[in-house]
Amino acid sequence: MVLLDIKGISKSFKELKAVDDLSFTIDEGEIFGLLGPNGAGKSTTISMIASLLPPDDGDIIYKNESIMTKPNKLQKELGLVPQDIALYPTLSGYDNLKFWGHVYGIRGKELKNRIEEITELIGLSDRIKDRVDKYSGGMKRRLNIGAALIHKPRLLIMDEPTVGIDPQSRNHILNTVKMLNKEGMTIIYTSHYMEEVEELCDRICILDKGKVLASGTKLELIKLINGRERIDVQFELLNSKFMEEIKKLFYIGEITVLDNRVSIISENAENLLGDLIQIIKNSNTRILSIDVQKPSLETVFLHLTGRALRD
């Protein structure tokens, strides 16, 4: 069942077209990934879905009703984990949860119980009475998620929830997302960490420069590159001789150069690797690493845009 239907939405900020005729649907109970580099339009899309920004064009339908005209229905059932920490640093974690619970009409014992549940879920039971400005980055991120879950939202939007945190907190967040989804929550997950999106999402929409480049399940997207592998070569100093020689190989695939790194997507990575080492040797240049990667979303993105995801 389609929960959210995005119909041709666009948004411009002066000269910049941040989102350009974007359309996709999100089914109830799925984790939908929005993948794209910084500036792809993910956060603008999220803001429009959350009814924070009105689209210039198009419409957003939630449970068969436009949120442009009736935002209330969505607002009650939406939980937003913004990219930035949205908490009151001088208040305790408990007071932050209490406030957000109150905002959504939860009171008294119900609120108290709900805070306990959330505190346990985000693993902050022993620090919940401390002021938020005493928390580590990871703890703040977890509380940020907790604040969005306090009212048991039906649709949870998570905008880059793991930016700048330690691996332990990151794992905790990813596990929490999986658990929430298992319980039936629909989740929109945006990230520029390809591994996270690959691990979590049922369907993925790849965005770049405000447009949908591709969308589908992970397998469907990888099919776009026909199972080709990627070889990344990191040079100490890339020279022109190497580039001239490598381009002479008739079976070479797509080549992308970024600073001193060369990425090659090829159907015949095994043969290419031998030739590549020979060319490196002949071109008298030093390399720092060679990395052969299995087909991944990162490769798909590189194939679609000619740029790496984290550029």
Binding site: S47, A50, S51, L52, N72, Q75, K76, L78, L80, P82, D84, I85, A86, L87, Y88, P89, W100, V103, Y104, G105, A147
Partner: peptide, 13 residues
Amino acid sequence: EYHTWDKMLISPL
């Protein structure tokens, strides 16, 4: 500054 303003705007408030 705390980004709570936007969260309030999308809440039932």
